[in-house]
């Protein structure tokens, strides 16, 4: 069935309630297209969504899905993929979900390198809770809980990923539909943990990191002739705080996904209808 899947098959009939103009529309469209373009269909895809405006994606997309607890989407995704290597797993959430309450999981998901994709809709704000500072907010960004700005440097999620041993690091922009889709496709096709940080502007609560800001400043690495296999070049791009980049920044071609080195291949949902045949051997071990 996969050959005639269209991206709209991944759309649910629930109308998004995002604010008109929210970056998440574009981010989601690209994810759906990328899933369809890589030969997946809703019945063999599992989407795990975080909590936030971004997390609503689970409701607006159609596939097997779980919308869980704030910050815990990555472990759920890893569990699904380990139990079901035959299923395409995509995890999505916000910058607060992934880099604040879920930051511990992010580091370990990166180094665990389970073969799945992770799309973070980074609007540098807490959207759902109506505009508080997020871990990626600028240090002088004034919000209701940080009237003078957080006065702390923002987290650099790409650097965090690199330091955690990432095998795929990319960044895209919700309104550059074509490039965003291509980049998410590459994350899906990567053998391992495909991480994409998406600039997905919040038009309601963030008047700094706007569409215009990203349009004016974004540098596309593809046009720069960047080689994603070059670790040192990737490091330079990631640590360059003067510019915003889009593209596949780093990819390790030798990546060995978790399931491969752990010999996970079985569909764990299939079990016999009684104890395993040789199970009395387990008892005899205790002689």
């Amino acid at each position: 069935m996969s050959s005639d899947v269209r991206f709209t098959d991944f759309k649910s009939d629930k109308q998004p309630t995002w604010c008109p103009g929210c970056g998440d529309f574009g981010t989601m469209n690209g994810m759906m297209k990328a899933l369809a373009n890589t030969g997946n269909d809703p019945d063999n895809t599992f989407v795990v969504a975080g909590i936030g405006c971004s997390g609503k994606i689970g409701t607006y997309m159609h596939s097997y899905a779980l919308h869980g607890v704030h910050g815990r989407a990555l472990p759920v995704g890893a569990g699904v993929k380990m139990a079901r290597p035959d299923i395409e797993v995509m995890v999505a959430g916000g910058d607060g979900d992934g880099y604040s309450i879920g930051s511990g999981h992010f580091i370990h998901a990166v180094r665990r390198n389970v073969d799945m994709s992770y799309v973070v809709m980074d609007n540098r704000i807490y959207g759902l809770t109506k505009g508080q500072a997020s871990p990626t907010s600028r240090s002088d960004f004034e919000t209701s809980t940080t009237p003078e700005g957080p006065k702390q440097p923002p987290v650099n999620p790409l650097a965090l990923a690199l330091a955690s041993g990432a095998t795929f690091i990319a960044q895209s922009f919700a309104s550059d539909a074509m490039r965003h889709t291509e980049i998410v496709e590459a994350a899906i096709e990567h053998d391992g943990f495909g991480f994409v940080n998406v600039f997905s502007p919040c038009v309601t609560f963030n008047d700094v990191d706007t569409y215009d800001y990203f349009r004016d400043t974004l540098v596309d690495l593809q046009e720069e002739g960047h080689d994603p296999n070059d670790y040192d070049d990737a490091k330079d791009v990631i640590l360059d705080s003067d510019k915003e980049y889009q593209g596949v920044i780093y990819q390790d071609d030798e990546s060995v996904p978790y399931g491969q080195h752990q010999n996970l291949g079985a569909n764990m949902s299939e079990i016999p209808d009684g104890a395993p045949e040789d199970a009395m051997d387990l008892v005899r071990e205790f002689y």
């Binding site: 795990v48 869980g68 472990p75 759920v76 569990g79 699904v80 580091i107």
Partner: peptide, 21 residues
């Protein structure tokens, strides 16, 4: 897992996949 928050969510994920977990 990296902590118990993760452990129970991973186990939940595997169960969503259909494994006895």
């Amino acid at each position: 897992a990296e902590d118990e928050l993760s452990a129970i969510n991973m186990a939940l994920g595997a169960a969503r996949g259909g494994a006895r977990s």
